[in-house]
Design a protein around this nucleic acid. Structure first.
Lengths: 191, 191
DNA sequence: TAGAAGTTTCAGTAATTATTGAAATTTAAA
DNA sequence: TTTAAATTTCAATAATTACTGAAACTTCTA
């Protein structure tokens, strides 16, 4: 497994970014390699391509599997396991969002819910609880929203994305059509 | 600055999560403290509350300022600077999204654009370029989409969020209303 | 069931990242 | 200005995180 300069630049970059996306450098590089490789790769090929120990690759594969980002590929008559990236790019992005939601938002939501149940002891805590409530509501909204987006079918999602901020107009239109009485608390919408 | 158990549990938790949100433990704790404190705090108060060095606080404040998450508060006749969290919870979330977009997506988009301009040298590179193009398009869509969401006014945004996956129905409705004959069945083309 | 091929585990170590604290710098009242 | 109060900087060091490689384990075939 010898990487061409083009492929290497992408793999190395993904390694650097990896830490920002929630995994370490080697895991990022491994994933990049599997994404741009048409054929599945064995653990040894990965280790060789990235100049990294076999053990490290083993741990990285475990991690990528826990993210459900790769799948195994068994070749009959060959005892080695081969690995390749799983699903379309959109599906992969979904996995990453999902996993990050679990890691970044869910634990905080749980903590905040617990705190909201406590009885404030003084003026500071009353104020604190108010802010925590706001944070909780925001996180919950974002969390629900993203998980629902993920359940939408890709076509609708595509339309939605391409609409961009034009979605605001669509919502105005809907509101007009439905002649809702419970008008927005504040000012009427304008972009 | 003595923290009550409730406040401490939140501050400590935010410290732990901090690393997942793009800053280190101390910065996360500092921000949590400023968010739940009704009155602005001096650097020394922060250092004392968190049992952390004055120098560390100084660096943390710099970081939070670079994220535009806090603002200074000057008290006439007092030489110390005081700090408090800036804006509403929604605005803060926006800041974090914005900053993360800059750090997590923009550099990759730049790199990918560069690679797309290269001439593939062999079969592997042709395949690789195709996948990189897909990643590029996805990132660009998400990037544009999120930055447009952020420019929407909070009410529309709120409606949109509350709609959740119901937004799919709204879009279907819109498509029906606009009923063009050249409706593409397979690929949802752009508007 | 033996043993070769392959994978995983994890203690030790390397690399990276965060923190301290003392010195240098800045700030503002007198 | 001067000077004391406050802040920032950064080299040294602590804490954390990632990686290696050899041993333990698993799996498949004969």
């Amino acid at each position: 497994m010898q990487m061409t300069p083009m492929i290497e630049s992408f793999v190395m970059h993904f390694g650097e970014m990896g830490s920002r996306w929630g995994f370490n450098r080697t895991v990022g590089q491994m994933y990049a390699l599997l994404v741009i490789s048409e054929t599945p790769l064995s653990a040894n090929q990965i280790a060789e391509a990235l100049s990294v120990s076999r053990g490290n690759v083993s741990m990285g594969l475990k991690e990528l599997q826990s993210w459900q980002l790769i799948k195994q590929h068994h070749v009959p008559g060959d005892r080695k396991e081969y690995y390749q990236s799983a699903g379309t790019i959109w599906e992969m992005a979904n996995r990453v969002f999902e996993e990050r939601r679990k890691r970044e938002m869910d634990p905080t939501l749980t903590l905040l819910r617990g705190i909201m149940l406590e009885t404030p002891e003084n003026k500071e805590e009353i104020y604190a609880q108010q802010r925590l409530q706001e944070i909780h509501d925001l996180l919950e909204t974002i969390s629900k929203w993203t998980s629902e987006l993920q359940q939408m079918n890709p076509d609708t999602l595509g339309t939605l994305m391409k609409l961009g901020s034009g979605v605001g107009k669509v919502i105005d239109m809907k509101n007009k059509l439905m002649k809702t009485n419970k008008t927005p608390e504040r000012k009427p919408d304008n972009e």
